[in-house]
């Protein structure tokens, strides 16, 4: 192979002096967004793509530490997980899964639009993706604040409130009496459950108005249910792992919002062309990875039986 067909004519030596700074940007005068040290758009794209894959590898290994902690504790202390997941809201988890899947689709569509040079489609798909990310964070916010209210903190501060325990008691009860039928764990459901509990040990269960409540704000029947809940030793570890996994994932969503916004600004400025769309693709890959991690987190945390 001779040298002639590889050295791009636009990188004639000496040309860089004409450019400002270090001569590293836009070295190829009439080839926008092709950095001076690359010979072609293809080389630049390949480098970027390999780079982003390697970055994703580091992300996978980064998360692997948390997955490892999860696996070790789940295998050695399964009771923590059987207990802890009672407090997670399966519906919200499922909704968030769908939200992220939608955002992955729109991201894939955005990449496609960028490759085809469809600027309008690209912009709108990115906007939808960012919107989904915000919805996801909003739902996570609701979940977190509910947990905090119920005293479901990481190990050292783990102190579930009586309401939280009552809720867990109902979940356990339901699971036992309705066989294995999964049950909704909505927050507002507590009272309703308390009312239609068909246990015999309190005849007045249905009559809220005249109920005597103890210092926990519970009726005697409810207190009995709460007392029947066996909180396993170190139950807080489940929540430690829950917060670490979802928290780190949430940070990645926020980083994703920032990255997609950057791409959005650049697409509004019209930077991307069918020859140069790398950044959209790279951010897309990152976003899909964040989705991928959630695909595992959802069943691992919310769908334990």
């Amino acid at each position: 192979m001779s040298t002639a067909d590889v050295v791009s004519p636009v990188t004639a030596p000496g040309e860089h002096h004409a450019h400002s700074g270090d001569g590293h940007d836009h070295g190829h005068g009439h080839q926008p967004h092709l950095a001076h040290h690359f010979e072609s758009y293809e080389q630049q794209f390949d480098a970027g793509k390999l780079g982003i894959w390697l970055f994703l590898v580091t992300e996978v290994l980064f998360f692997s530490g948390l997955f490892c902690a999860y696996v070790v504790f789940r295998v050695l202390y399964p009771e923590l997980f059987a207990f802890g997941h009672l407090f997670l809201n399966k519906e919200l988890g499922a909704i968030n899964t769908v939200v992220l899947l939608v955002s992955s689709l729109t991201m894939a569509l955005a990449v496609r639009a960028a490759q085809l040079g469809q600027r309008q489609v690209l912009i709108s798909m990115l906007v939808v993706t960012i919107a989904c990310a915000f919805v996801f964070m909003g739902i996570k916010y609701v979940e977190y604040t509910t947990k905090f209210r119920e005293g479901l903190f990481p190990a050292r501060y783990f102190a579930p409130t009586p309401e939280a325990l009552l809720h867990a008691a109902h979940m356990i009860h339901d699971a036992q009496s309705h066989g294995a039928a999964g049950h909704a764990a909505g927050d507002g459901a507590h009272d309703e459950h308390a009312a239609d509990t068909s246990h015999g040990h309190d005849a007045k269960a249905g009559d809220h108005a005249h109920e005597e409540v103890n210092k926990n704000g519970l009726t005697a029947a409810e207190q009995a249910m709460v007392d029947s809940v066996k909180v396993p030793a170190n139950a807080g570890l489940f929540f430690s792992i829950y917060y670490c996994l979802t928290g780190l994932h949430g940070i990645h969503i926020i980083a994703g919002i920032a990255a997609i916004s950057w791409i959005l600004v650049r697409s509004i400025k019209g930077h991307f062309t069918p020859l140069y769309f790398g950044p959209v693709e790279y951010v897309g890959l990152y976003w899909h990875l964040v989705d991928l991690i959630w695909i595992y987190l959802f069943p691992l945390l919310y769908l334990i039986h």
């Binding site: 293809e42 496609r112 085809l116 069918p274 769309f277």
Partner: peptide
Amino acid sequence: VPSYSHIMPLWIL
């Protein structure tokens, strides 16, 4: 569309 850019058909997505 350059060779390094593979376009995923819409129906697949």
